[in-house]
Design a protein around this nucleic acid. Sequence first.
DNA 1: CCACATTGCTATTGCCAATAGCATTTCTTA
DNA 2: TAAGAAATGCTATTGGCAATAGCAATGTGG
Lengths: 143, 143
Amino acid sequence: MLDPLSSLPGYVLSRAAAASLAELNRELSKIGLRHSDVSLLILVRANPRLTQSDAGKLLDIQRANMVPLVSRLLDLSLITKKPVDGRSQGLLLTDKGKKLLKEAQAIVDHHEVQLQLSIPERLRPHLLPILHALWDSSRSKSG
Amino acid sequence: MLDPLSSLPGYVLSRAAAASLAELNRELSKIGLRHSDVSLLILVRANPRLTQSDAGKLLDIQRANMVPLVSRLLDLSLITKKPVDGRSQGLLLTDKGKKLLKEAQAIVDHHEVQLQLSIPERLRPHLLPILHALWDSSRSKSG
DNA sequence: CCACATTGCTATTGCCAATAGCATTTCTTA
DNA sequence: TAAGAAATGCTATTGGCAATAGCAATGTGG
């Protein structure tokens, strides 16, 4: 059966990303989180009092779509909000959030290592540069 | 603002794929198609009388989710069904489908070329091998 | 002060994947 | 060949996530 799609980098890129994300989500579901939760938690840990809007900019998630994501983490008591001014609220990890993030981080780390190991050693140094090049170029067309 | 995510290959992979797909869909929307439509059309062109189930296997789309996809292309008169046996039906491109696919192919080709050009020439030969390595490993975990 | 931008939000829509279950048809094999 | 197993196409539903339009409250700069 002919598969003309597998010679198209764009197609393979999408398939690889989808499969990788699905695998990560499978692992993360064991601790009740999704990849989007973890990316936000990691961001808030690195940037305490980060604004919901600014987080959205870094994650390329629109303000409107940040609402249910943040709400979920609030409901789970993984983060809190502290008013920065009258309209903005800085996000902070709770102790529970910090603790759960450590577990999530272990899962993510393992996932990332597996990703690295999955490609031939010879090609490994080129992985991140190539991905960043792809990312940057696509980004410049939309943002 | 710290962005600890951009050093994670898995994260960058997802972001790159999402951005690339969004860009492709933007272009394809001009001719009323989506990337999933085009991938199926390309597959049917390469494998006339391909079964809906087999197409799903190649595209990694479950049988249930193939239904609305195929229905849409039928409604648009881009494909037809010809019974293969009592339960299976082979998919075929209509003349209209062939014509529209040519336009889609031009868009896809341009997209793929841009993708290639977006990364430094030195890294270009490594693109497809790396993506395939990522795809294969993720695939082996789920399929 | 006033026009403008920003923040967080509601509400809706669309795309796509996942699951469970069903009727029909085909294949297997005992 | 009859019976059980598998395959095919489908319905119906759910969940995750992105995109859009619009709103009230708040902040900012001329």
